[in-house]
Amino acid sequence: MNKPANQKKNKTVRFQTGIQESRRAVSNSLIEKIARFRNTRALDSVATVVITMLGWTAIFVLIGIAGFLIHSSIRAFDEVGIWSMIAGTDWFPTSSDARFGFLPAQVGSVWVTIVALAACVPIGVFSAVYLSEFASSKFRETAKAVIEFMVTIPSVVFGLIGLAVLVPLIRTYLPVDSGLIGLTAGLVVGIVCLPTVISISEDALRSVPNELRHGSFALGNTRWQTAYKVVLPAASSGVFAAIMLGMGRAIGETMVVLMLAGNAGIIPTSPFEAARTMTGTIAQETGEVVRGSVHFSVLFALGLVLFVATFIINLTADMILERSRKKWRR
């Protein structure tokens, strides 16, 4: 009984010493303590097991989420059918003759994502080119810090600003009845994705070896020619991966679309119509739905579609990124 408690205590001590070691505020007695622990083989193997288990946890959680989504969607698959959901055009979840077609939400998500990418890809890639090829290192450091800070701003804040600024502008200057349309949501989602695209593209551009830039300068190319003829093509796979990750972020974005897209239940034919997205639908309806009902299960099926879509996009992006990282390890 006493032993596990003791072990636990040891672990916490070790953890603390670890922290202090990393802070380089190590007194002599601590060095001795750490040395003693390092010499203990049993503890070493325990640590290996713990770390391995923690490493696998992330993978188990992912599998668990997928399994849970599938399990919860089974009723929807049985009673509604997978095709009448994925290819169904009507979304009337609460009427007596309930229809559970995902197309309005899927098409809405696609429009919002297209607008978001159209807004953030040019700005994002050009910013990255500027930061990596033209900006002074001082400016680049500052800008990168600001951009990384942008990631931490909750998207609801962007939604709020969009609601206050962009919605009236769009209603005034575009021939639409309401400012709450796919375009508005897409533009703000684009801003939300911007840091991802800039930061990862910039990393890709910076990983292109300087020797290539010098080779291009030596052939009489200007900085700008070098950027678009040599550096950008050399980093193209990394930049593409950055765009893919931005796209994954855009599809998954919930709060902004919930606030700005208008959430109409029809299939939008253009971004100038009110739209609802997959994420918005789930967020809006899970609060009201009867637990265990078909509708409840259908929302999980929708979540599964979203999960599969973002999983494929992110996996592809990661694979491309990994390949582009290897390219320069000569």
Partner: peptide, 12 residues
């Protein structure tokens, strides 16, 4: 023209 220390062909 210049030739560098390490071969630096463009990825083309």
């Amino acid at each position: 023209g210049q030739v560098f220390q390490r071969p630096n062909p463009f990825p083309l």
